[in-house]
Amino acid sequence: MNVDDSAHAVVHDYPGGSESLAPRLGMSPAVLNSKVNPNTSTHKLGLVEAVRISALTEDDRILRAFAQQCGCIVLRAPDANDAAASDMAVLELVAAVGGSQGDLFGSIHRGLADGVLTEAEFALIRTAGTAAMEKVAALLRRLDGMVER
């Protein structure tokens, strides 16, 4: 999904849509609708506004679309409270990393099983791959919190 389509979806998927979100952004629903309408050229969503929308909605689709268009990926940052963890919590996270890799390889297997990889199949692979990388990042954060400095 491209950035324009993502912005439109984020605003309109928000509970109450632009009618609820626009006042929180300090603008009218009509202006917000124009800014996120991919077919409107008179109003454009600015970067600062996109960041505010993402933060208010707690929806990272605009960021992910932006990163994808630039050839990058977005990994959710591990919770800072997860840095100090017990041995059992680390073991659970190691198992989650393994499970996420199984999900990734399973989605690759299913996507390639018929010899044709579709856009939809690749989207599932990308989602599983990103989830796996997020689990690895969380594990690294926890292990870093255990390092005796």
Rank of each mutant, 00 (worst) to 15 (best):
L124A: 15
A138V: 04
R126T: 13
V3A: 03
A96N: 14
Q68T: 13
G17N: 09
A138D: 12
A7M: 02
F122Q: 13
I53M: 07
A55T: 05
R110W: 03
L143W: 05
A22N: 11
E119S: 05
L63P: 00
A22D: 11
G102C: 05
A83F: 09
D79Q: 01
R142D: 03
A131R: 13
G17L: 07
L25Y: 06
Y14M: 01
I73L: 07
R64V: 11
K35R: 15
V11P: 12
Y14W: 14
R142F: 03
L63N: 01
G98K: 03
G17E: 02
V74C: 05
P15A: 01
E49W: 05
N37W: 05
D60A: 10
H8I: 00
S100V: 06
R142W: 01
M88C: 06
G16Y: 09
L45C: 08
K44P: 00
H12F: 07
N33H: 06
D114H: 02
T40I: 12
R52K: 15
N37A: 08
D5N: 14
A85F: 06
A95K: 14
A77P: 06
S20R: 14
R76C: 03
T127Q: 15
K135A: 04
F122Y: 13
A96I: 02
H12M: 09
A123E: 14
V48H: 07
P29N: 03
V97M: 10
S28I: 06
N33A: 13
A9Y: 00
R141A: 13
A132F: 11
L139H: 08
K35W: 06
D5Q: 14
D4Q: 14
S6F: 00
H8V: 00
G145N: 12
L21K: 01
L25W: 07
G46A: 03
D60W: 10
V136N: 04
L91T: 09
K44C: 02
S41R: 11
R64L: 01
N39L: 07
I125Q: 02
I53V: 11
M88T: 14
A22Y: 08
P29D: 05
G145L: 07
E121G: 15
L75G: 02
A77R: 14
F66A: 11
V74T: 09
D13I: 00
R149K: 13
E58H: 07
T57G: 05
A50P: 02
D87H: 12
G17T: 08
R24K: 15
A9Q: 08
L21N: 03
A128T: 06
I73T: 10
N39D: 10
M146K: 13
Q101C: 04
S86V: 14
A138F: 02
A96T: 13
M146W: 05
R24C: 02
V97F: 05
M133C: 11
E49N: 08
D144G: 11
V97R: 01
H43F: 08
L93N: 14
L25T: 11
A137I: 03
N33W: 00
L25G: 07
V90H: 06
R76M: 02
L112R: 01
V31I: 09
V94W: 07
E92M: 11
E49R: 04
